[in-house]
Nucleic acid binder design. Structure first.
Length: 290
DNA sequence: AGATTCGGCGT
DNA sequence: ACGCCGAATCT
């Protein structure tokens, strides 16, 4: 092992380490690569014995900002984080090319939506470098003892609009498929177009650990800017019937069946390929007597 | 297999 | 010029 000088990185949550490795040879000798390592997870069995468990993502290595950003999700706004130096650089806003200016609709066809951007985080530069908890104890006040991490950062209202035009596609940019939502799911606020609504709900399901109910406050209909529940997607409150659940179960079963079939077929194909190669190998070998 | 390292594409 | 990530190489 090379002397690894992993240093703490104050701009990231506690436990994250930064490492810089100088390239020793080749055309790029002298240049360096920067890596980050996620904090080890401590699992407590007995409060007195802490143990590091091996099969968790502890100490995972990160080699680019997008990769780091994907992992941290909305936990940390990396908007002004400089990967190379490991510091927050105020005044380094998103460098999206003055899009939206000319043709807001071009988003849907030509330009791809920002995949760099973690979804529900504010895009504006925060006046705070990091989430801050101000601890002032007054008699009778309860102060959160746990300075862990402000679990919820401010969210941009209507951030879902940035999901407009997001579609799944394969490597050749072919759009793979679109999905239809049940009528009965309706958007709230500006831009209630269907695809945005779908993206918003999918994101909500993906990112939230609490139930997705949609906007339950009736007032949100009239004045979303005030009454919006920012922890719910821009969607009217909806109900899911038992019938719909059964339909969905059926779909999942069918999907699992076809996946099973595909895997089976693939396995057979591989097996056949292997035996064919072995046969050829044998036929060409001196021991075959041919 | 996983970690390390450099090349080289895209911007 | 540099960020990012594929893949050759090393252990």
């Amino acid at each position: 092992m090379m002397e690894k000088k992993r240093s703490d990185c104050p701009a990231l949550p506690p436990g994250w380490k930064k490492e810089e490795v100088i390239r020793k040879s080749g055309l790029s000798a002298g240049k360096s690569d920067v890596y980050y390592y996620s904090p080890p997870t401590l699992w407590k069995r007995d409060p007195k014995k802490e143990k590091t468990v091996s099969n968790d993502p502890s100490g995972k290595k990160f080699r680019s900002k997008p990769q780091l950003s994907r992992y941290l999700g909305n936990k940390v706004d990396l908007g002004c984080f400089d990967f190379r130096t490991g510091k927050m650089m105020p005044g380094k806003l998103q460098k999206s090319k003055q899009r939206l200016r000319h043709d807001p609709l071009s988003l849907a066809k030509g330009g791809k939506p920002d995949l760099n951007t973690a979804l529900p985080i504010r895009q504006t530069a925060s006046i705070f470098k990091q989430p801050v908890t101000k601890v002032t104890s007054h008699p009778g006040n309860k102060v959160k003892a746990d300075l862990q991490r402000a679990s919820e950062q401010p969210r941009q209202l209507f951030w879902e609009r940035r999901l407009k035009g997001l579609q799944s596609s394969d490597v050749t940019e072919e759009v793979l498929r679109t999905m239809d939502l049940p009528i009965g799911l309706q958007g709230v606020g500006p831009d209630s177009s269907g695809d945005t609504l779908l993206s918003a709900i999918a994101s909500a399901l993906h990112m939230s650990s609490t139930p997705i109910t949609g906007q339950t406050a009736a007032a949100a209909e009239k004045n979303p800017a005030i009454w919006l529940n920012t922890s719910q997607p821009l969607c009217r409150a909806f109900t899911v019937t038992d019938e719909q659940i059964r339909e969905q179960e059926l779909k999942v079963h069918q999907a699992r069946r076809s996946l099973e079939d595909a895997l089976m077929a693939d396995g057979l194909a591989r097996a056949a390929e292997n035996t064919r190669e072995q046969l050829e190998e044998f036929l060409c070998s001196p021991t075959s007597g041919l």
